[in-house]
């Protein structure tokens, strides 16, 4: 495309168009805005409407929220999700950053690349597939690490999925599928740190530990926060892992374990969509606040 303004008429038209900024822009975003309204805004309003009304469409105040909060399964579900989130976020930050730093230090680029690829592969098994794999891995009768499970004192599947250990198990599954992608990202971010800075530090006598602690980790901070926000928001939505686990253990473990399961059961087992909507609104609010605070405060995105 050459920059030649030989067409007077064309430039005139440009001026005229400049008087109507936005027409074309609105045309380009129209479809997206329709979807945003239909599948972002409307369901949100709908959930809020249901959360504040009764089955008979009369205003209910906060009674659906108190119903949900008063349900014997509610507080345990909050506790489960909170405990899971702590395990998940801590392991994510510690191991993803740690592994990315180790991979970045590897002298052999080929080995580093291969390892990154191997770490990343389980990401393809996200969702139900990862739960299937881990149901087998956690079953001492067929597990490839049966010796490990037995060393830890587990001889049957039911012992492994005892309620106390579930946050750890869900963390294992989530970490197994999700960590590899984040390691790639952290590695890429490490590559973006100017080699001159690291070289200067090395010449000044900094060891790998000091370089990591004083240069690399501070410069990764933004990405670590971003990862935590996404992992936090995603973690509050725990559903498929406990749901399938409860199927596999005949409801012994994982039934009504998470808030999303509870919302689902309110809606489809108890036929109480209003209380279900109240739980959804709470989860929505949690996700919305986390996202909005991050967008507003982190400076991560420049939305000019």
């Amino acid at each position: 495309m050459s920059i030649s303004a030989r067409n007077r008429a064309g430039s005139e038209r440009t001026t005229r168009r400049a008087l109507w900024p936005g027409r074309a822009g609105h045309g380009f975003v129209a479809l997206y805005v329709v979807l945003l309204i239909a599948f972002g805004v409307v369901p949100t309003i709908y959930a809020i409407y249901f959360a504040f009304t009764t089955a008979g469409d009369t205003f209910a105040g906060f009674s659906n929220f108190t119903d949900a909060g008063g349900d014997f399964r509610f507080l345990p579900a909050v506790g489960h999700v909170a405990l899971y989130l702590v395990c998940w976020l801590v392991s994510l930050v510690v191991f993803v950053v740690g592994l990315a730093l180790l991979l970045h230090r590897l002298a052999s680029r080929g080995v580093s690349k291969t390892l990154r690829f191997l770490f990343y592969i389980p990401g393809a098994l996200a969702g139900a597939a990862s739960v299937m794999v881990w149901l087998f891995v956690l079953d001492p009768t067929v597990s490839p690490v049966a010796f490990l499970l037995k060393a830890l004192g587990f001889t049957t599947f039911d012992q492994v999925v005892a309620p106390g250990g579930l946050p750890i198990l869900f963390t294992l599954i989530a970490f197994w599928t999700g960590a590899g992608g984040w390691i790639l990202v952290m590695y890429g971010a490490l590559n973006n740190i100017s080699p001159d800075i690291l070289e200067a530090a090395r010449i000044d006598g900094a060891g790998p530990w000091q370089i990591a602690r004083r240069i690399q980790i501070p410069m990764l901070r933004k990405w670590i926060v971003y990862m935590c926000i996404l992992a936090f928001a995603g973690g509050t939505q725990l559903f498929v892992e406990p749901e399938l686990l409860s199927q596999a253990s005949n409801g012994v473990a994982g039934r009504d374990y998470s808030l999303n399961q509870l919302s689902y059961d309110f809606a489809f087992q108890n036929n109480n969509v209003n209380t279900a909507a109240a739980v959804s609104v709470e989860l929505l609010l949690l996700g919305l606040v986390a996202a909005a605070v991050f967008v507003a405060r982190s400076g991560f995105f420049d939305a000019d």
Binding site: F39, T44, Y46, A47, F50, G234, Q237, L284, L288, F294
Partner: peptide, 13 residues
Amino acid sequence: LMPSATLVVPLFL
């Protein structure tokens, strides 16, 4: 930044 699962039950409604 919001996980899509938040809207599943509202989408059902």
